[in-house]
Computed example of a mutant assay.
Amino acid sequence: MKKERIIKELSELKKDENYRSLKLTDKKYINFSSNDYLGLNEDKELRGEFFQKFKDEDLLFSSSSSRLLSGSYPIIMKLEKKLEKIYNKKTLLFNSGYDANTCLIETLFSKTSLIISDRYNHSSIYSGIKASEAKLLRYRHLDYNHLEEILKKYSSEYDDILVVSETVYSMDGDRANIKKLVQLKSKYGFKLLIDEAHSFGVLGYGECYEADVLDLIDYVVIPLGKAGSSIGAYVLMDELSKEYIINKGRKFIYTTALPPINVAWNLFILEKMEKFNFRRKRLIELSIYMRNLLNEYKIETISSTNIISIVIGENQRVNKISENLREKGYLIYPIKEPTVPKGTARLRVSLTALHTKEMIQKFVKELNYEIDNVF
C-alpha cells in the first residue's frame, strides 16, 4: 500500500470521527469497558492463592516452542485432559479466540462447503470463512425463521453445511437460542459451531454445557479473555477433527504455545469455576438493576445480559458523550463502524461483579444528562 493512500485513508477516518488510537487505562476511573465480568482479574486474594498453589512448580514465562515440538509440556496436557473430563469432548488449546475460530473454520471447511452465519458474528468467524473459500450466506441476527428458509433452499445442494452462532452477542448484549439451533440441526443435519466468548464464566462452564446440549453440537469455541480472566481459547470437538487440526491447522502448527504460567492460571480458574456462583448471581442482580434504571430514565436498550448496549447513532455524538463521561470519572469507550453498522455507534456498558448499585445509579444519572444535552 502506497504512503499517499495510507495517509488519505487515515485522514478520512479522522474526518468521519472513526479514527482509533491507543489510550492509557488509568485505574482512577470507574471502568465500564472491562470484559472481566466476574472480577477475577482484580482479585488479589485469588492471585495469591494461585501463586501459593503453584509455588513449587517452575512456571516459565514462555513455552519457547510450538505444540508439535516441545510446547506440549505437562501442565498444558493436564489442562486439556481436565477439559475433556468436564465436557466429554476432545479439546485443543489455542492462543486466542481469533486464532481458534479462524483455524477451525479454514482447516475443516473448503470450497465445497456452505457456511451459514448469523449476520452479527465476530470478525474472526468471517476471517475463517473467507480463508476457507466456502460459500457464505448470512441469516438475519437471531432470526431462526430466516435461517430455516436458507436451509430449506440449500440443504439439497450441499453435503457439507456449517451453521455458526455465538451465545451472547457483545455489541447488542442479546442471546442466541441454542436449543432452537440444536432443533434445526436435528432436522436438517448440518454441523454446528458455537462461540462462547461472552458466556463462559458468566454462565458457568458455558451455555452449551449448562443447557446440556454439548453432545449435539459439533464445535464449541471458548475464548478466555473475558470472564475467563486470561488469554487463550478452548476448542471442543470430536477426535477426528482434533487429529486433523493437529496435522493441518496452520495457526495451530506454526504458533508458539502459550506460556506455562498462563496455562496454569487457566487450569486454576477452570477447577474453581463452580465456586464463583456468588459472583454470577451478583452480576445477574446488577444487570437487572441497571436495565430497570435505564427504563426509568427512558434510555432504550435491547440487551438481556450484563453487556448493555445503548445506541447513540452518529460518531461525533457518541465520541463527545464518551469524553464527557470520562471527565466525570467513568471509563466507557464508544463502539463504531466497522464493528457495528454505520449510524448505530453506541456505548457498550460491560458490567462486572465488582460494580456496585451506587456506582451504577450515579453513572446512569450522568449518562442520562449527557444523552439529553449532547447533540
Score class of each variant (00 low, 15 high):
Tyr120Ala: 14
Thr112Phe: 09
Leu136Tyr: 07
Thr25Pro: 07
Asp99Ala: 12
Asn319Cys: 13
Lys28Met: 07
Tyr158Phe: 15
Val163Pro: 01
Leu151Asn: 11
Ser124Arg: 02
Ser21Trp: 14
Phe61Gly: 13
Ser33Met: 05
Tyr369Asn: 05
His355Leu: 07
Ile312Leu: 00
Leu347Phe: 00
Ser303Asn: 04
Ile222Lys: 00
Leu151His: 10
Leu224Gly: 03
Tyr19Gln: 04
Leu203Ala: 10
Asp218Pro: 15
Leu193Asp: 06
Leu108Pro: 00
Met290Thr: 09
Lys342Tyr: 15
Met290Glu: 12
Gly97Pro: 01
Asp218Phe: 12
Tyr234Gln: 06
Leu224Met: 15
Gly204His: 08
Leu354Thr: 12
Asn262Asp: 15
Asn373Ser: 10
Lys15Gln: 07
Arg140Met: 11
Val374Asn: 13
Leu286Ala: 03
Ile178Gly: 01
Glu133Asn: 10
Asp56Ser: 04
Gly343Arg: 01
Thr256Gln: 15
Asp172Trp: 09
Ile371Met: 06
Leu283Phe: 06
Ser322Pro: 14
Ile360Arg: 04
Leu216His: 14
Ile360Tyr: 03
Asp212Glu: 12
Lys44Glu: 09
Ser64Asn: 08
Ile360Phe: 01
Leu22Pro: 05
Tyr169Gly: 03
Tyr234Ile: 11
Ile178Leu: 13
Asn306Gln: 11
Val235Ser: 07
Ile371Gln: 10
Ile246Thr: 05
Asp238Ile: 03
Lys275Ala: 14
Thr256Asp: 14
Thr339Cys: 14
Met237Val: 07
Glu84Gly: 13
Ala100Arg: 13
Glu106Ser: 10
Ile116Ala: 09
Asn101Ile: 00
Ile307Pro: 00
Ile299Ser: 04
Glu239Lys: 04
Lys226His: 08
Ala134Trp: 05
Ser113Glu: 04
Lys152Ala: 02
Leu46Phe: 12
Ser21Ala: 11
Leu93Cys: 00
Glu49Pro: 01
Lys275Gly: 14
Glu17Phe: 15
Leu38Ile: 01
Tyr73Met: 06
His355Asn: 13
Ser110Glu: 14
Gly343Ile: 02
Ala233Val: 10
Glu337Met: 12
Ile194Tyr: 10
Val220Met: 05
Glu285Ser: 13
Leu181Glu: 04
Lys2Asn: 14
Ile116Asn: 01
Asn41Gln: 07
Tyr205His: 08
Val202Ala: 08
Val374Gly: 08
Ser110Arg: 15
Glu296Trp: 07
Arg138Thr: 15
Lys281Arg: 08
Leu270Tyr: 11
Gln52Thr: 14
Ser72His: 01
Ser186Phe: 02
Ile312Cys: 02
Asp16Asn: 11
Ile231Gln: 10
Ser304Trp: 00
Glu80Thr: 12
Ile178Phe: 02
Lys55Gly: 00
Asp215His: 09
Lys362Ser: 05
Val235Asn: 09
Gly39Cys: 03
Leu108Arg: 05
Ser241Asp: 10
Leu181Tyr: 03
Gly173Thr: 02
Thr344Leu: 09
Lys27Val: 10
Lys153Val: 08
Gly249Val: 02
Ile332Gln: 02
Glu196Cys: 06
Gly48Lys: 15
Ser156Val: 07
Gly204Glu: 11
Leu236Thr: 09
Ser117Trp: 10
Tyr297Val: 00
Glu323Thr: 11
Lys191Pro: 15
Glu42Thr: 10
Asn368Gln: 04
Glu210Gln: 08
Gly343Ala: 01
Glu314Trp: 02
Pro338Cys: 00
Asn306Ser: 06
Ser350Val: 07
